[in-house]
Structures are given as C-alpha cells and as structure tokens.
C-alpha cells in the first residue's frame, strides 16, 4: 500500500524551478532513497512534503490524506517526522529534553495542567522521560542525556536528532543526509539503525550522498537532477542506468555550466565502484 504519494509536485524560487513536476510513491514498510547532485532539489522536496514550504502545484498525500495547506505541526501529528541536513536541535536544552520534545505529539498536558502541576500529569511526564531515555540509549548516547546539545560532538548531535524524530513514533520518517559528516564506521551504524527502524514498521524516505549506504539499504531509489525526476528504480537498475551515470560522471563532457561543481561535490566516489 502506498503510504506517501507525491503527484506532479512543483516549486520555484524566483526563476529557479527547484522541484519540477516530481511524482513518486513510497510504500508502507519500505526504505526509499532520493539521490541527486547538490542543488537537485532534494531538501526542497522534503520541505514540501513536511509542510515547511508550500508547493506551487501538485499534491502530497499521506495515508490517503491530502497534506497540501497543512501546517508542519499538523503534518507531524499525522505521523510524519523528519531530520534536517544541517542539524536543527533545540539550543539551550539538554539532549534528553530535546528528545522529550519529540514526545510532544504523544502526550497531552496543556497550559493549565502544566501550570498547576496536576498529579495527573506526573505519570505522563515520567513516561515521556523514560521513553526518551530509552531512545538515547538505543542511539548509544545515554551518557550525554544531561548535556546541553550545543556542547555535543557532531555525530552525537545527529544521534540526538535521530532519537528526537523517532520519539514521535512516526509512520514515515524523512531523513535528510543522515550520514553526512560521519565517518565510515558511523555511517555503517546509521545503516544498521535505519534497518532496525524499518523492522519496527516505520517507513523511511531518505536523502543521502553516500552511495554504498544508499545501495545497501534502500528498496527503491529516486534520482533527481535540476529539480526533475530522471529515474526511479531498484538499486541495481539505478547503478546501470545510463542517464544516472551520465549525471554523476559525465558532467564534464556535457560541460553544462554550474553543474560541474555539483558533480565534483557528489563525486560519485562509490558509484564508480558499484557501477
């Protein structure tokens, strides 16, 4: 069954068509990856899905429900959670507190209950705390629980963000370059983690540049270039897709201005070895 359906999605910034008529679906329980050179529109696509940007045209459906026009917080409540390419943690709060905010959609205490510290909220608070601690433990950073997040190492910050996203118990998790800036060892762990998440029944849509990771874990891959979807297939097929190879490797022959830099950035290091 299709959990997420994206149909003819469009978004421009000024004259730039960052996402151009993109359609695809993500099936329940699958891991789908979106790849493409820098500036291809992957993050913009995520922002459109999560409600951070309004599409100029097209439609996003989640569990059969149209998401267009909903606020990010409303979309989150429907069971969609995300991480950011450039980590967005709550500065000034500890790692544990960050994850506890993730439990927001799964708890209820309001202003009045909070101000009066009603005993009814105590059990809920304890539950939030325990569950969040459990997630930090799962990510292997339980010892950082009481540290302010801005003081954590980069990898630990990624882990906190991951835990925070999981804390909402989402049906669909959007991961924007979860392995960016991590070393090979940590990247492997991220792969393991994503698999574990899927086993819990969470569907994953991720953007990632690390090709070995993408090829390893995804069931299907969507390739974007200059805002357009140019391929969608299983990993093996994508590796052999001439169009994709050209985008990642053949930029120089084509000599398209502006694209060269992008290609170098992505550098398809591991595409070469796989392809």
């Amino acid at each position: 069954m299709a959990l997420l359906e994206i149909a003819n999605l469009n978004r421009s910034f000024g004259g730039l068509r960052a996402v151009n008529d993109v359609s695809f679906t993500v099936h329940q329980g699958s891991i789908k990856a979106v790849i493409g050179p820098n500036g291809a529109g992957k993050t913009t696509l995520f922002n459109l899905i999560a409600g951070n940007l309004a599409p100029d045209g097209g439609e996003v459906r989640f569990n059969g429900r149209r998401l267009n026009g909903l606020l990010p917080c409303q979309i989150a409540r429907l069971g969609l959670s995300r991480t950011y390419q450039n980590i967005k943690l709550f500065a000034g709060m500890t790692a544990l507190e960050n994850v506890m905010v993730g439990r927001h959609v799964r708890s209820r205490a309001g202003f009045l209950a909070g101000m009066l510290n009603l005993p009814a909220t105590w059990a809920e608070e304890r539950c939030i705390r325990d569950k969040s601690m459990e997630l930090l433990d799962l990510m292997g950073i339980a010892e950082c629980a009481d540290l302010e997040v801005t003081n954590l190492a980069f990898g630990q910050q990624r882990a906190v963000e991951f835990a925070r996203a999981l804390a909402t118990e989402p049906a669909l998790l959007l991961l924007d370059e979860p392995a960016a800036g991590l070393n090979i060892y940590e990247t492997g762990e991220v792969g393991e983690l994503i698999r574990k998440i899927r086993q819990q029944g969470i569907t994953v849509l991720l953007v990632e540049h690390d090709m070995s990771l993408v090829m390893d874990i995804s069931d299907e891959i969507v390739v974007l270039s200059f805002g357009e979807k140019i391929a969608e297939d299983q990993p093996l097929a994508i590796q052999q897709n001439q169009e994709v190879i050209r985008i990642y490797l053949g930029e120089e022959e084509e000599g398209s201005a502006g694209g060269t830099e992008n290609a170098a950035d992505v550098s398809g290091e591991r595409v070469v070895t796989h392809a």
């Binding site: 990010p72 917080c73 409540r77 967005k88 709060m93 905010v101 927001h104 205490a109 309001g110």
Partner: peptide, 22 residues
C-alpha cells in the same frame, strides 16, 4: 512541563519544533 519544553523548543529552533508537532 510539556508546554514549557515546547516553548523552549520554539525558542531554540522554531522550524524543528513545528516538525515535532508543536
């Protein structure tokens, strides 16, 4: 409380707070 954490989250990163359902 839960609300207080949400408020601080808005201060820390409003966009991410929204993504957490706040």
């Amino acid at each position: 409380s839960r609300v207080g954490r949400a408020l601080r989250a808005i201060h820390g990163a409003e966009e991410a707070a929204g993504a957490m359902g706040v």
